[in-house]
């Protein structure tokens, strides 16, 4: 079972929810937490696992053998990203623009192009008992997160409870992280920013045909609009976390909510039961 934790807006508490859920479940299940926010992975700041395995992520980029190249220009013509340019007697490759699609090497009439790996990030793994954390890290200065996210998701074992910490936003890294989930938990806050970005996130999960539920964080300041929106749209509100300086302080120190205030464990176990019920009901409906 795969549950992703997304938000649209950044800083609403995705990582707090994902780590608390993982820690609450690990006594009863084998849990994999995937930190797919590879631009800014933070889950292990709360989990403190020893990430003792590490594997580089490469994008295949073209390498031109100029002894074979006739400068015909086919590679540049087929490259949709302008990552390769052919001059009169020189081929220029722009590695940061290359998506690694492989078209140039396959289509070169002289077989003058091979591929070499360009390192864009790493995937790290660590575990403790029944909890396994896999986190991706995009190299600083690199633009493309999806190849790193794809590598993180290769570790998914569907026999486990898989929790995915999704990056903020609504564009390609979010899609890459969320797709394939059985359920998406959307974490928001009760402000106009939270509502605006929640409604965008709802559009994303609907486009992917994934059922969703909402967690409202920092309840207390702000208005009722988020709740009204959820009722209108028929989206269940599964958990509310109050605005509480103590919770913010625990987070600031890297202490998971369910360890700092253990009674929250019950809340997250109930949240998980609700998610299971919703998934089961949607299977029956199908």
């Amino acid at each position: 079972m795969i549950v992703s934790v997304a938000s649209g807006k950044g800083g609403t508490g995705k990582t707090l929810v994902a780590t608390s859920l993982a820690l609450s479940l690990r006594d009863n299940y084998k849990v994999q937490l995937l930190d797919c926010d590879v631009e800014e992975p933070n889950a292990n700041i709360l989990l403190h696992l020893d990430m003792n395995q590490s594997q580089p992520v490469y994008i295949p980029i073209p390498k031109v053998d100029e002894t074979k190249c006739t400068y015909c220009g086919k590679c540049a013509e087929v490259c949709a990203y302008n990552a390769i340019a052919v001059l009169k007697n020189k081929v220029l490759v722009f590695p940061e623009l290359c998506h690694g699609c492989g078209a140039c090497s396959y289509l070169c009439p002289e077989s003058a192009i091979t591929e070499e790996g360009r390192k864009v990030g790493i995937v790290e793994r660590g575990d403790s008992g029944h909890l396994e954390l896999i986190q991706g890290k995009l190299n600083v200065g690199e633009a493309m997160a999806p190849p790193v996210i794809r590598e993180v998701k290769k570790y998914i074992d569907p026999a486990n409870i898989v929790i995915i910490d999704v990056p903020p936003g609504t564009s390609c890294p979010v899609i890459e992280a969320v797709k394939g989930s059985d359920f998406c938990l959307l974490v928001t806050e009760s402000t106009p920013f939270g509502l605006n970005d929640l409604s965008l996130a709802v559009e994303v999960v609907r486009k992917l045909s994934i059922s969703c539920g909402v967690v409202i964080n920092r309840v207390g300041v702000g208005g009722e609009e988020v709740e009204r929106y959820c009722h209108q749209e028929g989206i269940p509100i599964l958990l509310k976390i109050p605005l509480d300086r103590k919770i913010a302080l625990l987070y600031s120190k890297g202490i998971p909510l369910v360890e700092g205030i253990p009674r929250w464990r019950e809340e997250f176990l109930r949240l998980f039961q609700d998610i299971k019920d919703i998934i089961a009901a949607s299977w029956v409906a199908k």
């Binding site: 631009e39 800014e40 600083v140 493309m144 990056p167």
Partner: peptide, 10 residues
Amino acid sequence: GPPGIGCPVI
């Protein structure tokens, strides 16, 4: 600006 360090940030 956007959050993160990836393509839109750059």
